[in-house]
Design a protein around this nucleic acid. Structure first.
Lengths: 341, 341
DNA sequence: TAAATTCTGAGGTACGTAAATCGAAAATTG
DNA sequence: CAATTTTCGATTTACGTACCTCAGAATTTA
């Protein structure tokens, strides 16, 4: 049977109240007495029963998720997964509020962060944009003991919280290796498609991609990035124009959203079936494209995993328990038509 | 605020004891009264507070994991992950017992299953071998309300539990697509290495692999399987012999354990660096081989994820709560040197 | 209608912890 | 040494649920 506070009190030769004061770091206990209690705790191997504690405490994990508004499909997937988690959140004494802020707007993000009341909120997960105001707002939260995880886009200047997401440079490198290996030795050009080069993710993916292509596949050259602006029609036009302009293209890397437009453009001409196409984000569209042979590989990060990880990490930080690294590390997933989940 | 049993009792116009009887399916409640209570429950959206219930119930999730003994490295990884989970299991009121049984021994497995006391054990996770005795033992557990998940190797005849693991045919197909695409159009032979063809996983992976190679890469032919017997020295000898015997080999697929021997054999001759090598299981050895360019890709299933999933699923079945499919589905992971976690 | 049986209510204790009060004891200060 | 402050003990209530008892009400059976 697990030892309880009563056992600890008895073993330490103090009263239950004192054990409680030590456990909850309340004042009014001599340091020698603290030591006695802690000795008893470790001697007995006492661990606090968190569910009982939370029951007594009437604890509710009040978390806030801040994600960008707009049409970015990954953000919409995150939002959708958050809804799923919210449906089950009552079971875990967890209350999640989702705040949507305009994308690429540091000031708006900072305002959202400033609006968080550290009296009632104990954890924040945020898709961070870099800016001094944001940094200061995050620092304020940290000072006021609100735990923070940065989601998807790491804010490198803020090192006091956890990061949930992938390394996008590595994701770009992964795409490049697949591209280079799939294309083979023949020379040719590669078309790069991005939603917008304002998105940090896309910048990083491109960097990783070009690094590897340049260093390891000298037969291939990257064309300037085509911007699809997160819109199917625009993406379709842009890709179609690029493909007809450049007959030597052997491969295409879509580093962001806009798979639908890309698929439309590729479906237009049967000759394009020869192209090696690598895209990001597993969705209904990209799954079908994989099955149909239009896409050769899809790089993905699991939005559901990210949301659940963020919640688990925040809960662990609030409870003061350990996080399981293996469980919370987000993978750069590679999908071919054969290993679709 | 969440509604409690008190609220339900009041709303239904009955006493707390009656609500309790309905909730816990105790006898002695008229069906009309049951209906009244259930109406109130759904009207208020009452959900039982599981941690409070478990506290009151003094519930401990007593789980048994049965895994094969022997040198299979994936099983040893499972065992290791189980140890990690056990370290944290007190926090979750979970008590895990690990039983090791001889590999490939249906009778021994059946005996282990029969030894499980359904009075004290509420969930079993088992790496199942197919056999009538095993099937009967699993059916007994099901009859006695012990929840079962089959781990890694699905026992197809037993459909009353959950499955945690990957589709190994699909894993083999994935390896084949990578192989075919990486090798390119040049003709050649492929060496296949297995631990032992007694292992169901390896049989399935081979089937998937050969399916895809035959159907889609006519330039490639698969050589007969080389058996490494899960032993580094044996594997090294067998692979080296095969490689020197067949000069036309362009690729090598190791569908099971024995990466260490394989790496040794490949390191012996610099000419082998040209080979496309795809292996299973991400370990220190295979990571290094990936980094060094000796391996081109590694297919992996996350042992930690599988163990944690099995535990979560069993807990959910015991509590009668829902399982989150996206969280519990095990992925066929592809690792290149660029996306190593 | 009486007797037997089935339902239901009221109330209690328990699980392990949190948090509070209040008085007593101990330590520190002047 | 007295006055003050700090430390500690004993006890209580509460969280939401489980499970028990016992008496009384409602229903069914004889």
């Amino acid at each position: 049977m697990r030892p309880t506070v009563h056992d600890v009190a008895e073993a330490a030769g103090v009263s239950l109240a004192t054990v409680d004061r030590v456990l909850n770091r309340r004042a009014g206990v001599r340091s020698t007495t603290v030591a006695k209690v802690e000795a008893a705790i470790s001697r007995l191997g006492y661990v606090r029963d968190i569910s009982a504690a939370n029951l007594a405490k009437q604890r509710i994990y009040r978390l806030v998720f801040i994600i960008p508004d707009g049409s970015n499909s990954f953000m919409r997937r995150l939002e959708n997964e958050l809804e799923q988690v919210k449906l089950r959140s009552a079971l875990n004494r967890t209350d999640i509020t989702v705040l949507k802020v305009p994308a690429f707007d540091g000031a708006a993000l900072a305002r959202a962060l400033e609006s968080i009341d550290s009296k009632t909120i104990s954890g924040v997960a945020v898709v961070a944009t870099e800016s001094p105001m944001v940094r200061e707002a995050l620092a304020r939260l940290h000072r006021e003991n609100v735990h923070v995880v940065t989601l998807v886009s790491d804010a490198p200047a803020f090192k006091r919280g956890d990061y949930v997401g992938v390394n996008n440079v590595a994701a770009g490198r992964t795409a490049a290796t697949l591209m280079g290996r799939f294309v083979g030795r023949r020379p040719g050009k590669l078309a790069l498609v991005a939603g917008s080069m304002l998105v940090r993710d896309h910048v990083e993916r491109r960097m990783g991609f070009e690094q590897v292509i340049t260093a390891e596949f000298p037969n291939l050259t990257c064309l300037p990035v085509v911007e699809g602006r997160d819109d199917a029609a625009t993406a379709r036009e842009a890709v179609a124009a690029c493909l007809s302009r450049e007959p030597e293209i052997v491969g295409l890397y879509n580093m962001g959203a806009g798979n639908r437009g890309l698929i439309d453009a590729l479906s237009a001409d049967r000759a394009y079936a020869e192209l090696t196409v690598i895209a990001h984000e597993l969705s209904d569209h990209s799954r079908r494209a994989l099955r149909d042979g239009l896409f050769d590989a899809v790089i993905n990060q699991d939005a559901g995993h990210e949301v659940r990880s963020a919640v688990r990490i925040l809960q662990a930080r609030i409870d003061g328990t350990a996080v399981i690294d293996g469980q919370e590390s987000i993978r750069i997933e590679i999908y071919l038509r054969d290993n679709l989940p």
